[in-house]
Design a binder for these strands. Structure first.
Lengths: 214, 214, 214, 214
DNA sequence: CATGAATGAGTGTTCATTCAT
DNA sequence: GATGAATGAACACTCATTCAT
């Protein structure tokens, strides 16, 4: 798969437990609870049960740390979705299942998903988030390309279609993520179903001519 | 149309020009250049050529100011797109044109569009952003409903479809931000065309069955 | 009587109504409601129904204005108490009545009394407050001196005794002024009676020898 | 004794000296020099030779810091006076000595005493100041009650009498602040003697009837 | 003269980062 | 290596005062 985790992590010294994942987990928990804003270095250190100074032994700055949290969490999601994408079945089935899986998981960890999708502050973190979008898009594109190859889907700009699917999923998730009304959770399933149906039509539907104005 | 601008602004000012739009413009320019983060009160005041105190004569707090920037900018875009939506033509044509118009305008001010779509931090600003998404979605939904009514589009969850279109457009705008390559601007038009085609297929395409797993 | 109002008020121009007392009254009302802190120039101007600029035509600064409010209000109280002091009756009776009158009036306008007695911030306002204390003390001293002269009271440092009376009254007023508990108002009368009794004993009581340690 | 210092100060500090008393002392010095008004966080930090941030490690806010200064300083004075109150001797002797001690100490640090007695602005600080008054009053009341019990003093409202003594002492300290003449300091001793004599007469003097008017 | 919009120095507070122990 | 006390730049916001209209 496309690896989001490319930071060398050279500064890690062996001897004793590697606190890297511990810190990452503590930070993710905090972010999942109350967003990036509340994930201050002091809070993260406390949550990880270590001193602030130790934090800086594993991460050069808060920004780096947040970036890594985003990358780490995103990679996991991308991996899961990618796993679905490589199963047996028609491209259509796999596309639906991949989208469904992504949405289901995101809805389970609402606050974290929201942070990963819509909250970022620092440019570096934002960049990591976009990389996440692209990695996810790449998974969908692979399925679409296969579908086009085997005649399931009509000829199309598969990269654009994949981006659209990502956009549909995020928009469909972000909106309810912030509104208290949708917290009921029940209407979620039908909402997700509608979104995926739209995506499938977008990918497999009969071509509609759109001619951009001069 | 759905009015996003509901702040009363009761204070009357008699002498001197109303600095409200001046400040809004200065703030928008700053945000367009480097995002909300850099739009500090000091910077905004300087950009507007006024004193900090004057800022607070027009806006009770930084948050309110940012919210108003989002609302103001968003309302303008929504109005333009809504105007397109009410012209003559088939639902399909109008949907395409509305989407095209939105994308074209947004691409002109990329950084600002991005801020409006993905950057907000404060809950109040976030809320304003979501209102923007929903207002835009409502415009598209109106077109879709008309299309369904006159038989152009098949039966569907028009609200979900409209949300998807918004998601496609936003993702299509945000996505290129991550790839330096696409900054050339030239391939933009074809990219937008592909996205809109996907949306039209999603709305008008033949129904594809997606059955969510148990 | 001793005049507390010595500021020249040269800057007042005739023609039209003299807004001096109007402003003073507005300021006093505000102070009586929520203390000096809330008596901002904007608030005072608004309460007086004039513009801020006009305020500065009558008072050179906020400090001067507050000083004048203190002086003005204090003078009125001193005048009333002094009136009691010059009535017929024994020195003892007049002392009691003067103290009683002062206390009764102060308790009627609780918040204002508190501001005048314990809230001041700026050195200049503080000075005005002290002048108030001294003016009040002078009234009591006059009575005490008369009492000593006609044999009602034993020989004593009348200035110190007068200061003590002022201290007793203020302490007796300030304490309950800030405690919500005493807002019942009923136990006030007996409390005041006890205080005045203490003062009368202090003035008329049999001499007790206090020899300061070396 | 009645403890004015109830703040928990739970934060533990291991390395370096506990800067709590250092900050308190720096703040008290500043207040003693020019009152609460000039005791800004920046000034306090500078006076204590530490950074502003460090201030906030020890005190959550400026208000809390000022409150603690008042409590700390007041508690010390109350403790000293209370110590005198529990020595051997007649109630009269102890009352005189307690008052004398309080006055002598207060006169040594005039400006600070004044701030503690008459300057506070913020409600929280004011509350701390009142607690100080009441604590001091309680000490005097104890002596008075003992004097009444052993027949030294006539029956009386001991709480009111104690408040009066506090009022006399405070007024006696604040009053001279207004007259430049008395700043010489020499006449201070006789002034204090006169005040204490008044108080002793007020407590031990023959009852004088005061009947409040209807 | 009256007006009130404009001013901007000043203040309390936060939090990522450093470095002596 | 781990610690966490110390740091201080940065920021939002207030309000007495001024001066062009």
């Amino acid at each position: 798969m496309h690896d989001l985790l490319t930071s060398p992590r050279v500064r890690l010294r062996r001897r004793g437990a590697d606190k890297h994942p511990l810190i990452l987990k503590a930070a993710r928990t905090l972010i999942a609870q109350s967003g990036f804003r509340e994930a201050q270095m002091t809070a993260i250190a406390e949550a990880a049960g270590i001193a602030i100074g130790t934090l800086y032994r594993y991460f050069p700055s808060r920004t780096e740390l947040l970036v890594e949290v985003v990358k780490f969490t995103a990679q996991r999601e991308v991996d899961v979705v990618a796993g679905i994408a490589m199963r047996d079945g028609t491209a259509c089935e796999r596309l639906g299942m991949a989208a469904w899986t992504f949405a289901s998981r995101a809805l389970r960890g609402r606050r974290l998903a929201h942070a990963l999708v819509a909250e970022p502050v620092e440019p570096e973190v934002e960049a990591a988030r976009l990389t996440y979008h692209r990695a996810l898009s790449r998974v969908f594109r692979t399925i679409i390309d296969q579908g086009i190859a085997n005649g399931e889907f009509p000829e199309q700009d598969s990269a654009a279609s994949a981006d659209c699917i990502v956009g549909c999923l995020f928009e469909g998730l972000v909106a309810p993520l912030s509104s208290e009304a949708a917290l009921a959770g029940v209407p979620m399933q039908s909402q997700v179903t509608s979104i995926i149906s739209f995506c499938l039509r977008g990918v497999a539907g009969t071509a509609v001519a759109f001619i951009p104005p001069a």
